[in-house]
Design a binder for these strands. Structure first.
Lengths: 222, 222
DNA sequence: GGCCGATTCAAACAGCCATTTCGCCCATAA
DNA sequence: TTATGGGCGAAATGGCTGTTTGAATCGGCC
């Protein structure tokens, strides 16, 4: 597996790639420097030589993983800004799901670990990186809901959509964790397109109805 | 904080409670035996005396936390089985959100850590414990969608609903992690009822539309 | 009191971790 | 050729971990 990695890449780059792979799989504390260096065919001291600490390697790994994922999966999903809002939402959902389900896309797995167990090292940098994406998502959802719907509802709907996307991280991890133990079974054969399609349909359906129900909120039992 | 804990409870019980608190906050590996024993006003050797290892304490802590949460927040939300399916779904969502947002409800936080970073220690036990809840949720969603909708759609919708609920774990953690750093701000003042209400409205709206769209799936841009 | 089993304790143990040290290798330049 | 300096590596360091040990302490019972 390191045959191609050892080819022509520099040790520093191999370290970052190995760090991405192991940090995304095990999280910051569980991924050891020894493992990373072994994966990168480098000495244990290499991490502290190129980066001054494990912390810095962590931040650098996320930075590169995020940048690479952003170019591999453009956040608008390839849908032009002139397209109808529904299609733009579909594109964004497809982009996020694509990044999450991409096996060589490590940034979301690292965020997943960070969400459950924050180290604080990525707090600032992730907020800055994700903020524009969040704003764009809010804009699309707001456009779909119309001006009559309060801003808080827009935020809640956007959270509902992102929550469905992020949940794929759990599925992805439980799948890879149980791989080999048994055949995947007939009840979990989801692929990225199918998931993105469902989330889009589900969310658009909900938004269409909430659009009419603006100001009317007795749809629940209380 | 240990004044009430030291009152009359046995050391074994204090250990389990301290373990719940710290395991749910830091996860299995980061919560150290020393911390737990200090929190429980017990000696370091107490864990290995009462439980034979940290692993067993972990399992026992989750077991008790789950059982207590289940009685504090009945999974049907107090809605009788004779009520309409929409109200039963609302009750189940309210129950899950209530358990997640309850500050002394540790079981979901522990699962959250397990999802991002599985130790394998809770794999079997959680699946057994959650399976009936999952089946009941599938039944309610299936009833709402009607018999014409394929089973895979039912599962996807149920996942969409649970994903929204589970996402509150992220909010809860980021809130508690940043508490004291700054005032919560005007944009994140969600409470459990409001969240549960939104998820219910959002999901019921989506289900109502998907019910009609059975067999028709060109609602997305491709 | 005197014994005894259950509990608690301080200390030590072995193992793993990130980090550092210091010397080796080796391409390059003089 | 020798000198240089960046990259590299084996081994050591100090700190933290879960676990064990063996003695001290406690409460109940003859």
């Amino acid at each position: 597996m390191d045959a191609e990695a050892t080819r022509d890449k520099t040790t520093e780059q191999r370290l970052v790639e190995a760090a991405c792979k192991l940090f995304s799989k095990k999280g910051f504390h569980e991924a050891t420097v020894s493992e990373i260096c072994e994966e990168a065919d480098a000495n244990v001291a290499a991490v502290n030589y190129y980066f001054r600490s494990k912390d810095n390697l962590y931040v650098e790994a996320w930075r590169q993983a995020f940048a690479r994922g952003l170019t591999a999966h453009p956040p608008d999903g390839g849908v032009p800004p002139t397209a109808p809002a529904a299609e733009r939402l579909a594109g964004r959902i497809r982009a996020v799901i694509g990044r999450i389900c991409d096996p060589v896309s490590y940034e979301f797995d690292m965020i997943h670990h960070e969400q459950a167990h924050p180290t604080g090292l990525l707090a600032e940098i992730t907020r800055e990186a994700i903020e524009p994406l969040r704003r764009e998502m809010l804009a699309v959802v707001g456009e779909l809901l119309g001006p009559a719907v309060p801003e808080k509802t827009v935020r809640l709907c956007a959270v509902s959509i992102m929550a469905q996307c992020f949940h794929m991280l759990v599925h992805k991890r439980s799948r890879s964790h149980a791989s080999g133990a048994r055949r995947p079974g007939p009840d979990l054969e989801f692929d990225a397109d199918e998931i993105a399609c469902h989330i889009t349909q589900f969310s658009l359906a909900a938004i269409r109805e909430l659009r009419c129900d603006a100001g009317d909120e007795d749809g629940h039992a209380t």
